[in-house]
Design a protein around this nucleic acid. Structure first.
Lengths: 145, 145
DNA sequence: CAATCACCTAGTAATTCGATCGGGAGGATG
DNA sequence: CATCCTCCCGATCGAATTACTAGGTGATTG
C-alpha cells in the first residue's frame, strides 16, 4: 500500500513546518520551493490541513502557515487520515446474511486498517522528526517498538 | 487503505474454492453466481491466481478451477500481493541527500508495508475460513493474535 | 460432432488522481 | 486610500488507473 501524492506532499510540508516551529509563519510558496512541490496543489493541501486543525494561517503580507500546536501534540495518523480520503474506511456495518467470501474480505479489511492505524497513531510529528534526524534510523528495520 | 475490487473478488472466489476443497473442479461461471460477481472480470482474476500457482485448472467440458494445494498451505498475503499490483511497493532505495520530508514519507511507507505484510502473512486460507465460520468472530475486535 | 469451458486479446466505461486556472477576500504597509 | 501580499476556493482538465465487456481459440468430454 502506498500513500497518495496528496498525502505525501502534505506530510512533507508539515514536516518542514514542524522543523521550523515555533518560529513564525511560512508561506506556501516557500514551502513548495523547499520541498519542490507543485505550488497550487500544495495550497489546497495546506488548506485541508488548516481545516483539520493542524495548521494556523495568517493572510496578508508576512502571512503564511504554522503548526497550530507543538509537534509532540500532533499525531501523524490524524494528519494522514485527513489527507487520505479512503484510509480508515473501516466497514462499520457487519454484514450478517452475506457470503463467506464477503465476510472474509470484511475481516481482512478490518485487520489491515487496525494494523495501519496502530502504526500511524503511535507516532507524533516530534518523534517522526527525531527519527528522520537519525537519517532514517541507520536505514534498518529496528523500528516497531 | 482499501483493497481493490479485483483483489476483493479474487479473495471471495478463493475462499469459496477453499470451502469446497478438495472436491473437484468448480467452474468460473458457478463461482461468479455464488458470489454474485461479474463473470468475465472474475475469469481474468482466476487466471492470474492460476498463474500465481494458487489454483489448478482443467479445460474442456467438466473442467474448472480448484486449489492447487491445501488451504492451510496458502498464505493470504501471497494471494493478495499477486492481485494487488502495488502492494508491498516498499522503497528499496534509501534516499540519502533528500529533504527531511522525503525521508519522513519513506519511513512511514516502510512502517505501513511492514505492518500490513505482517498481518497478511500471518494468516492462511484455512485460518481465514475458520474465523469466517465463527461469524466473523462474533463481529468484535478480538482479533490480532 | 456438438456442447462445454478455460484461455487469451483487446477494447471501453467509469472513476480517481494529480495538477492547473483564475479569480476573489482580507490583512499589511506606505 | 492604494496596492501589494497571501490565503481562500471552486471549477476544470488530462492522464492514469480501475472495473468491466466482447469475442474468439482450442482443449475436453459425452
Amino acid at each position: 500500500m502506498r500513500l497518495s501524492k496528496r498525502t505525501e506532499y502534505g506530510l512533507r510540508a508539515i514536516v518542514q513546518l514542524a522543523k521550523l516551529w515555533p518560529t513564525h509563519y511560512v508561506q506556501s510558496r516557500d514551502l513548495s520551493k523547499q520541498e519542490n512541490l507543485p505550488n497550487k496543489f500544495l495550497e489546497s493541501i495546506l488548506l485541508a490541513l488548516r481545516r483539520g486543525g493542524f495548521l494556523e494561517s495568517k493572510v496578508g503580507s508576512g502571512g503564511g502557515y504554522r503548526l497550530s500546536r507543538a509537534p509532540r501534540e500532533i499525531v501523524v495518523g490524524d494528519v494522514i487520515r485527513r489527507l487520505e480520503g479512503r484510509l480508515s474506511a473501516r466497514d462499520t456495518s457487519t454484514p450478517r446474511d452475506t457470503s463467506p467470501g464477503e465476510i472474509a474480505v470484511h475481516l481482512i479489511n478490518n485487520r489491515l486498517t487496525d494494523a495501519t492505524d496502530k502504526v500511524l497513531d503511535n507516532i507524533t510529528l516530534e518523534e517522526l522528526l527525531e527519527e528522520v534526524g537519525r537519517q532514517g534510523g541507520s536505514q534498518q528495520e529496528m523500528y516497531y517498538i
